[in-house]
């Protein structure tokens, strides 16, 4: 400090804390503690997920093997879960066959056509409402509509239709987001060339949205795969029998290809086993099945990321 400093000195001096001072110790401490706690939440999630994965990896050790995946359930020993896995895949395919086209078309409407009007907000409300309805209620709706009113009984088709209703809002929203992410410039360029609106959607917007759409389909698929509550009262919860793949008559309920047969999926089977709770191998079978489901979820997730990235690169790069 110079000798001729004015009496009101706003510069650093004995009266002012230095930059390394400790006057705001309280707030600094609070900041440190908060930061540590927030890091803790992140660590907690990772540890929990890690623990779950390790737990199932250990539980599945010695249970999950090619024969477990590929053979029929057995009363006397460990057996396998093949018919359940088949049913899960079959239901997934059946569900996606309806919900992917309808969801993408609906997404096109919401992204490209929907005006700011009462119909659009009614659709949005419906979208939110279905997303928030408990899956067990959707299952009951499927029970009354497909099983009772339409006299279909417990069928894969009824289950797939109930799952479709349940997943349609998600698929529609993901499709809408994927389409909205396509830059407006691309649409303008196409329209300025005299393409019609539909030609623009069909030849410019949709191809550009493919990475997002693929990700959306895979994420929806993951959810369908694990869902059980919707299926309890629609696709049935039964004892799986041996599948005869030679039977190609899809109207025959004995054929594994038929949508008109009850189809207990892997997730429903886990629920059934734990509730009935008998059999010496119950815990191993459930652990193995759960491990398989988690592995599939991981594959779906990684697959969605990977495929999305590859497709984006393909579309935009040289």
């Amino acid at each position: 400090m110079s000798a001729g400093a004015p009496s009101i000195d706003r510069q650093a001096g004995p009266g002012r804390p230095s930059l390394h001072g400790k006057s705001s110790r309280g707030s600094m401490l609070a900041d440190r503690v908060a930061t540590a706690v927030l890091w803790g939440t992140g660590a907690f999630v990772l540890l929990l997920l890690g623990a779950i994965i390790v737990h199932f990896a250990m539980a599945a050790w010695g249970v999950v093997s090619p024969s477990f995946v590929l053979s029929d359930p057995s009363d006397s020993d460990l057996g396998g879960i093949f018919p359940l896995l088949w049913n899960s895949i079959y239901m997934l395919a059946l569900t996606l066959m309806v919900s992917v086209p309808v969801g993408i078309l609906g997404g096109i409407y919401m992204s490209e056509y929907a005006g700011d009007n009462a119909v659009t907000s009614a659709i949005r409300f419906a979208e939110e409402a279905i997303s928030s309805v408990p899956s067990i209620v959707v299952g009951m709706f499927g029970l009354i509509l497909f099983v009772d009113e339409l006299h279909m009984g417990f069928t894969a088709l009824g289950g797939a239709l109930a799952l479709t209703m349940f997943n349609l809002p998600l698929m529609t929203r993901l499709a809408e987001q994927a389409l909205r992410a396509v830059p407006q410039d691309e649409r303008s360029a196409s329209l300025a060339l005299g393409a019609t609106k539909w030609q623009t959607i069909r030849h410019v917007v949709l191809p550009l949205a493919i990475p997002g759409l693929v990700t959306g389909v895979i994420l929806t698929a993951g959810r369908v795969f694990g869902e059980a509550a919707v299926l309890l009262f629609t696709a049935g919860i039964g004892t799986p029998t041996h599948l005869n793949f030679g039977n190609l008559d899809i109207t025959n309920p004995a054929s594994p290809w038929s949508p008109f047969r009850p189809a207990t999926t892997l997730s429903v089977y886990i629920y059934k086993l734990q509730s009935e709770g008998l059999g010496a191998y119950r815990n191993q079978i459930v652990d193995g099945s759960a491990a398989l489901l988690i592995a599939l979820v991981l594959i779906f997730n990684l697959g969605a990321r990977f495929l999305g990235r590859v497709l984006t690169r393909r579309l935009t790069a040289a």
């Binding site: 691309e186 303008s188 300025a192 060339l193 005299g194 410019v204």
Partner: peptide, 19 residues
């Protein structure tokens, strides 16, 4: 408008080729 835009073409400020 489709016919119109075929007869009246447009080039934009930012080059916007399709991918």
């Amino acid at each position: 408008v489709v016919e119109l835009r075929r007869r009246v073409g447009m080039v934009f400020q930012r080059p916007n080729p399709f991918p």
